[in-house]
Design a protein around this nucleic acid. Sequence first.
DNA 1: TTTAGCACTCCATATTGTTGAGTGCTAAAT
DNA 2: ATTTAGCACTCAACAATATGGAGTGCTAAA
Lengths: 353, 353
Amino acid sequence: MLENSRYNEVLDLKKWEVLSATVSGYIRSALPVGSNAVNRYFGLSYSPATIRNIMSDLEELGYLTHPHTSAGRVPTEKGFRYFVDHSDFKKRAASSEWKAISRVIEPLLSGASVADLKEVLSDIVIQVSRTAGYAVFVMETRTQDEARVVSIEAVPISGRHVLVIVIFETGQLLKKTIAYPEGIRWGEFRKIIGKLNRIGRFRTLSSIREDLLIEMEGLSLAYAILLREFETLGKTPDFKLYGASQFAKIPEFSKVTDLKSVFEVFEEQMSLFAVLKKMVEPRGVSVAIGSENQVPGLDVCTVISIPLTRSGAWFGTIGVVGPVRMEYAQVIPLMTYLSDRLNEWLSGRESKD
Amino acid sequence: MLENSRYNEVLDLKKWEVLSATVSGYIRSALPVGSNAVNRYFGLSYSPATIRNIMSDLEELGYLTHPHTSAGRVPTEKGFRYFVDHSDFKKRAASSEWKAISRVIEPLLSGASVADLKEVLSDIVIQVSRTAGYAVFVMETRTQDEARVVSIEAVPISGRHVLVIVIFETGQLLKKTIAYPEGIRWGEFRKIIGKLNRIGRFRTLSSIREDLLIEMEGLSLAYAILLREFETLGKTPDFKLYGASQFAKIPEFSKVTDLKSVFEVFEEQMSLFAVLKKMVEPRGVSVAIGSENQVPGLDVCTVISIPLTRSGAWFGTIGVVGPVRMEYAQVIPLMTYLSDRLNEWLSGRESKD
DNA sequence: TTTAGCACTCCATATTGTTGAGTGCTAAAT
DNA sequence: ATTTAGCACTCAACAATATGGAGTGCTAAA
């Protein structure tokens, strides 16, 4: 069972069996599930009539709904949530089926250096999308506050602009063109950069920032400008969505207008950013079902996401996006594996190979 | 008229009027256009019966088709091509409507440095997508063969990896992690980088490559490795598509399966790359209608694209993607303006401000 | 050469009928 | 006290059938 059971209500065995069967059936078929189907395809020992009674109870409790009088049952978000919280997905994690992902992910990780993070994440996300059959996004803040700086370079570009490059131990780069006012000369700027390098080598950007505030007081206007730039250095998140075409398979999005609203959410990335940041807390796999995603247009989707962390600090998220009727039993183990493997790689336990 | 008239066949005035009206009508409505509609809404002085006769001729010539006996006419690709080649879009280019784009583009370009190329292109493409109402992609090869090098830096990362960074005059960066074999030491590597810097400052990467071949013969294995890496440095094209949600508006893609094939093309970027490279020749705006796009899944789309060049060398493409039934009269002037403005900016005629 | 008139075609839409999966209830069975 | 069979009822989905109208092609007159 996953850790976060949001409902203290606990269903008895019979109810759980029926709910589980209904949810599973609905995930497979995308069609309302009737009492007969539950009885036949899931081998429950209760008759259809009994199952009807139980389903009726589950409906009253809010786990199932009725599209119309003579249709089968469809799980509510609450139903999906209960299903996700009370299924033991680890059991199935051993199945050969999802092991396929490791055959695909391992070669991407084993040779690679963390310096190529971006490319590696791209490749991984494409593979995950293919394997899982859903769209997958990767979002990466470029705040490298916790990575150690190797060198800071400055290159004059035009009469008024300097390109500042911060090179991190991890091989990542941060660049920023800075406009400096007329009064300040290139020579002065270079002196500051030199000092920064002496101070900053093998320290984190955030600790350099602190020191700058203390040590270099009143050095000059140039310094003030530089410092201000450092505040915002590389805060723009980088966002990519892969496998959007996968949505076409999904009956929920058979109307183009439904698809549209989802795509719009991904084009409006900033709103996503805020939400994803909030979802970090439960270390490991987060599942946000339907309206649990606080993003307006995304309430028809489930997002299964894992945080990217380095030295304990969050710097990005990978997420699988699909319908609420998602193949949780496939995707959750997959993402669990990916989370473990990726964070192991990020923490550099492999840099010796 | 655009330069490339691909059909030597020339229609007489009457036929042109009817064709033009039919195409325009179809672009507006997405519905087959009947003889009445052409007569009424386009104020042609011929009666519906006459127009029917002309349409019948145009059909025989291959410019129009008939979905079924009692339906109006729909332009063929040949019809669209003739329309595009023989319309004078510059006339309409003065309309206040599309001038809006300059109000949006100018602020993005005027302050910006070429160092922020990527961000600027991103912003532009988003704005173009919003203004034009179609999806827009930007593709950028990272081959900076013609930009001059300011500095080459090397930073050791792990026992076996070096991060090489090439900094260009334009503020662009190229980075590559290079694995070097056991036999070679960091010190040796550093010497090579030092030499490279002395040789390379303010020269283009391609000319450095040539010199390396001559001057540094037999220097060592390390050099051989480095050289090989330089061959492929930054050849991976960078590709992004914005405004995919715009497709939802378009009746042609009202079936999700139709959308799917288009999205798949954009996920499979390499095939696009080859095609876009071929489309550079006609400097300025290229229009590829339907199957003129040599990409299999893209034959239901028109792509209107402009090349990105620096010092005459192509390094990328921006393209508007929409249905064959695209608003050519809006998009072509827009892209013409953008092409002019962008290449002016890229050639650095503004670096003085 | 252009145009009015007219019969004809065929898609789109609405109407109606039929089917069957599924429910809820009641009463019997365990 | 549960479970189950039996049965009437509901309602979406599908198919079959009308109806309307936009648009054509042809013919004959202007």
